[in-house]
Design a protein around this nucleic acid. Structure first.
Lengths: 211, 211
DNA sequence: AAAAGAGCATACCGTTCTGTCTATTTTTCT
DNA sequence: AGAAAAATAGACAGAACGGTATGCTCTTTT
């Protein structure tokens, strides 16, 4: 069973899962990167547009030229963060060869890389829902769209490994992924990725071994 | 294996896991309940003290008489929310008779009750860390103290069932619990408690069945 | 009943918030 | 090179923020 290809040196892959450190040559890009960084460090509501503007080195008028309101900036940042994360995550997974079960387990190795990064501050979508739970259904919808990619990928691999109920497998793995993210964030302990992997292995084995 | 005692009628047990709906006969109590409600609905930073005061039906001077600052109010609410939740949760567990494995699995039934409540907005500690990650180490410490009760309980039951590494069992179950909370909150789907329970069962069985 | 304590209504303070506007400068395009 | 587009610096508006203060009312204690 193939193990994950070794992670590249940190200097090269650091933070590709987020736009916060993305090089940006346009004012719009600089605003997005600054906002992404500040939102994840300080929270959405507690980050003012002045702080974004100062970090981005732009004028406030420029920010409002590109984004009609702070809420739209938040929405744009979440979309971009989701896209960047998925690009990184599924790109990492593409390098994994092997049977579906191995690939499903590799998910947790990749999560472990993410958690080990000192710029890991949890999942922006989980954090946004935590902060905005009753307010903004648009954020929940954005989060669901983001998660749908992951659920689809998980379901496809569960189908490929012949699981009797692929949707249930995907749901179970979602619990493990969410749990690993939150536990790692709360305790600042990337080791929870390995914990979640062990649980996933036990679970997936139980699907292929007669009880 | 004993199943959980049936949940009492909703009118009787609703929201005992939170101070948000607790009857309060003092101004201090009303302030705490109002703050708890507003913080979990709208987020900490986005809830102003004026809103707390309006909901509590008190004067602002009264709020500042009881709490030196908004931060102290937040801290007091989190402490009280933790205490209330633990009282409810471990009280619920006390009603569960049976071997340690059954009691560990009952955790997820109780979580399912919590998730099914229409006032379920996730775990205040997870939400607070999501919002304040880099700012306030006091909140992280409060969250850790809260979680320590749970981890201790889980570890004790893992010891009692003869698990070779009880700490690892507790860690694994923490992943499942955190994951269930976040997945249920994100998707507004209490069914994730059952998913997590099935995973926990598979995992615990694997500890007691020779591989 | 009177005193003490708790709480209220209201106004205020300085700061910060999101968003708007103008004149000017810089950058890009032709 | 010149025009157009993009961006900047800076000022402004009204509202909201956390927190302070005062005079008065209500509640509890003695």
């Amino acid at each position: 069973m193939n193990e994950l290809a070794p992670a590249r040196p940190k200097a090269e892959h650091c933070e590709r899962w987020s736009i916060a450190a993305a090089p940006a040559d346009t004012a719009r890009g600089r605003i997005m990167a600054a906002a992404a960084h500040l939102f994840c460090h300080h929270g959405f509501a507690a980050t003012g547009v002045d702080a974004v503007v100062a970090r981005a080195g732009t004028a406030k008028a420029t920010l409002y030229k590109h984004f009609p309101s702070k809420d739209e900036l938040i929405a744009a940042v979440l979309e971009a963060e989701g896209a960047a994360w998925r690009t990184w995550f599924f790109g990492r997974l593409r390098a994994v060869q092997g049977p579906p079960q191995a690939r499903l387990l590799a998910v947790f190795d990749i999560l472990g890389e993410w958690f080990a990064d000192d710029q890991f501050y949890g999942c922006p979508f989980i954090n946004a829902i935590a902060e905005f739970d009753t307010g903004d259904s648009a954020i929940r919808e954005t989060a669901m769209r983001h998660k749908t990619h992951l659920v689809t990928w998980l379901t496809a691999h569960a189908i490929e490994m012949g699981a009797p109920d692929p949707k249930a497998v995907a749901r179970a793995l979602v619990v493990l992924i969410d749990g690993a993210i939150v536990a790692a964030q709360g305790a600042r302990d990337p080791g929870f990725a390995a914990e979640a992997k062990a649980l996933a292995r036990t679970y997936l084995d139980s699907l292929t071994i007669p009880a």
